[in-house]
C-alpha cells in the first residue's frame, strides 16, 4: 500500500527526466511515494530511481517490456497497480505515459485527468486536486475525483522542477512479478522510422527559433536555421507552418507537438494561439517578431519588435552575427 505511485520511465541507460518530475510532484501530495519502472534489465535504473528519494522503487521486468508493444506496458502496469494499491497514480504525458495511463485507468475503473500542470492535496478535504489547461489553453480547470479507485493524473512534462538525485537513499527496491501472455500483445511495432536531426534536438535546445504561417513559405526557415546555428539552437514551428509542408512535423511546438522550455524562444510570424503557447509558455524568455501589434503572442513575450520579418530579420541576423562571433 503506497500513497502515491509514479510511473517512471527509462531512456537508454538512464531515466527519462519525467521520472524526477513525477517524484517531485508526488512529494507535494504527502505520504509514501513509490516509483514503478517497467522494462527488461532494470537493476541500474532502479538504483537511479532510488536516488531520486522515493520511499520505494517497484521494478517490473519482463522480456516483453522491450518497447515494441504498448500493450505489454499496460498489462504490466495494471498488475503493478493492483499489487501496490496506491491512493493516487501519477503518469507523465510522454508517448508511453499518455497511452499507458488512460488505458490502465480504464482497466481499474479509475478516473483520470489528462495533461495536468499542477497537482495538490486540498487543505480541508484532503482530496487530490489537479489543474489542467482546457479549451486549447484558453481556460484552466481544477478537477477532483470521485469513486473508490485511485485517481490517475497525467502530468505534462517540464512543469515541475525534477527531484535531484542524491547518493544517500534508503529507498527499498522491490521486484514485482508481472505476467505478460502472448495474447496480451495486440498491436506491435515492426519498424521505427526516425528523421535525421540537423544540429541540436529541439527538446534539449536552450535556444529555439520558431517560425509560423507569417513566414509564407519554406525558404524563410533557412534564415531561422542561420540564427539557430549562430546561437547553438534548434528550429521549431507552429502547426500551421508544419501543415503547410514548409518544415517537418517533428518541428511542431504546442499542445499536439513538442513541449519545450528553452531559455530563449524567438518566434517569427507566429500569432500565439493558445494551442501553440501550450508548448512554449514554460520558456524563460519569449521574443517576438510579428507585424501585428495585437497578436496574442506579445502578451506572453519579454521582448518584441512590431514589424515585417522581411525588413527586421536581415538586420537582426547581421547584428547577432557580429555580436556572437
Amino acid at each position: 500500500m503506497v500513497d502515491v505511485l509514479a510511473l517512471g520511465e527509462t531512456s537508454g541507460d538512464g531515466l527519462d527526466p519525467i521520472t524526477g518530475e513525477l517524484v517531485a510532484a508526488a512529494r507535494t501530495l504527502g505520504g509514501s511515494v513509490a516509483v514503478a519502472l517497467l522494462g527488461d534489465g532494470l537493476a541500474a535504473h532502479g538504483e537511479q530511481a532510488a536516488a531520486l528519494g522515493p520511499d520505494s522503487v517497484l521494478l517490473a521486468e519482463s522480456p516483453a517490456l522491450d518497447g515494441t508493444s504498448i500493450d505489454a506496458y499496460v498489462t504490466a502496469f495494471e498488475q503493478v497497480c493492483r499489487s501496490a494499491s496506491p491512493g493516487a497514480v501519477l503518469v507523465g504525458k510522454t508517448p508511453l505515459g499518455q497511452n499507458v495511463g488512460p488505458r490502465t485507468a480504464f482497466r481499474l475503473g479509475a478516473a483520470l485527468a489528462q495533461d495536468c500542470t499542477a497537482v495538490r492535496r486540498d487543505g480541508e478535504t484532503g482530496e487530490v486536486v489537479a489543474s489542467r489547461p482546457v479549451y486549447g489553453g484558453s481556460a484552466t480547470a481544477e478537477v477532483a475525483f470521485t469513486g473508490d479507485a485511485p485517481p490517475f493524473i497525467v502530468m505534462r512534462g517540464r512543469v515541475c522542477e525534477p527531484a535531484e538525485p542524491s547518493p544517500s537513499t534508503d529507498a527499498n527496491i522491490i521486484r514485482v512479478d508481472v505476467e505478460i501472455a502472448p495474447s496480451d500483445i495486440r498491436a506491435r511495432r515492426v519498424e521505427s522510422v526516425k528523421q535525421d536531426i540537423q544540429g541540436v534536438r529541439i527538446e534539449d535546445a536552450s535556444v529555439i527559433v520558431a517560425g509560423g504561417r507569417g513566414l509564407g513559405g519554406p525558404e524563410p526557415f533557412e534564415r531561422l536555421r542561420e540564427i539557430a546555428d549562430l546561437l547553438g539552437g534548434a528550429v521549431g514551428a507552429s502547426r500551421a507552418a508544419c501543415d503547410a509542408g514548409w518544415i517537418d512535423h517533428a518541428a511542431q511546438i504546442g499542445l499536439t507537438g513538442k513541449a519545450v522550455a528553452p531559455d530563449l524562444y524567438l518566434t517569427v510570424g507566429i500569432s500565439g494561439a493558445s494551442q501553440h503557447m501550450a508548448g512554449c509558455s514554460s520558456a524563460k524568455n519569449i521574443v517576438v517578431i510579428n507585424k501585428d501589434a495585437d497578436a496574442n503572442i506579445f502578451q506572453e513575450a519579454s521582448y518584441g519588435v512590431v514589424g515585417d520579418w522581411r525588413k527586421v530579420l536581415p538586420a537582426f541576423i547581421e547584428t547577432v552575427r557580429e555580436l556572437v562571433t
Binding site: 480547470a141 475525483f145 502578451q299
Partner: peptide
C-alpha cells in the same frame, strides 16, 4: 469520475 472544482481564465504575468 472527474468533478470540476473550478474553471478560470489563466493570466499571463509577462
Amino acid at each position: 469520475g472527474v468533478r470540476i472544482v473550478d474553471l478560470y481564465a489563466p493570466e499571463s504575468s509577462r
